[in-house]
């Protein structure tokens, strides 16, 4: 097992603090497992990551983090209702064809859902579109023709989707360079964060 603590980005550290200590966590699109590893070591959590990528599966296993190789577009049938305290979808939603179904699934499987995604409403993005071009930024670093981000939305768009699916939003804010943005987050933050539960 890797003996060194995982290095988290500033944004990941903020998200980690949203997870209650000792929680049973399902991390959808867990990447190399760094966040989950941190939650297990530093916050006494337990749980599993879900990943589709072979290299990430191996990275998680190498860390000693439980990981299940699944395509999230096939749903979460493997996981029971309210079987986790927290379900994380960190920078995952924008890659999913069935983003709305997965949002409902997240709320079904977890007592709490935490979703973070690139906020298209961030002012540099708006400016780029105003100039007639799709934005290319640190958080949205791809050209429009080769982006894996097939769902681009704003913080307010997500709030509307949550309402449509009768999710109860517990907290919502923006993230900019590791700082929480609570004043005009839809314009001032490159990343949106939502904490919600079943309505």
């Amino acid at each position: 097992m890797l003996k060194t603590a995982p290095r988290l980005s500033a944004d990941q550290r903020v998200i980690a603090r949203l997870v209650p200590p000792g929680a049973r966590v399902l991390d959808l699109g867990c990447g190399d497992g760094a966040l989950l590893d941190h939650l297990i070591r530093e916050r006494g959590c337990t749980g599993y990551g879900v990943e589709i990528d072979d290299a990430n599966i191996q990275a998680c296993v190498a860390r000693g983090v439980n990981v299940i190789q699944l395509n999230l577009d096939e749903g979460l049938a493997m996981f029971g209702d309210a079987s986790f305290d927290v379900v994380l979808q960190i920078d995952t939603l924008q890659h999913l064809r069935n983003a709305e179904v997965m949002l409902r699934e997240t709320a079904r499987v977890g007592r709490i859902g935490i979703v973070a995604f690139p906020n298209f409403g961030h002012w540099p993005n708006r400016l780029a579109v105003l100039r007639g071009r799709m934005p290319v930024t640190k958080v949205l670093p791809y050209q429009w023709y080769d982006t894996p981000n097939i769902r681009v939305g704003t913080l307010r768009d997500f709030a509307a989707l949550a309402l449509k699916n009768r999710l109860h939003i517990l907290d919502a804010f923006g993230l900019q360079d590791g700082r929480e943005v609570r004043l005009w987050p839809n314009a001032r933050a490159s990343r949106a964060v939502f904490k919600f539960q079943h309505g």
């Binding site: 072979d54 299940i68 493997m78």
Partner: peptide, 21 residues
């Protein structure tokens, strides 16, 4: 294999699962 994984998850056992293409 996923049936086994699911049953282990239901029992909250430590499990990792790789599906090799």
């Amino acid at each position: 294999s996923r049936e086994i994984v699911k049953a282990l998850l239901d029992n909250q056992r430590d499990v990792s699962y790789a599906e090799i293409d």
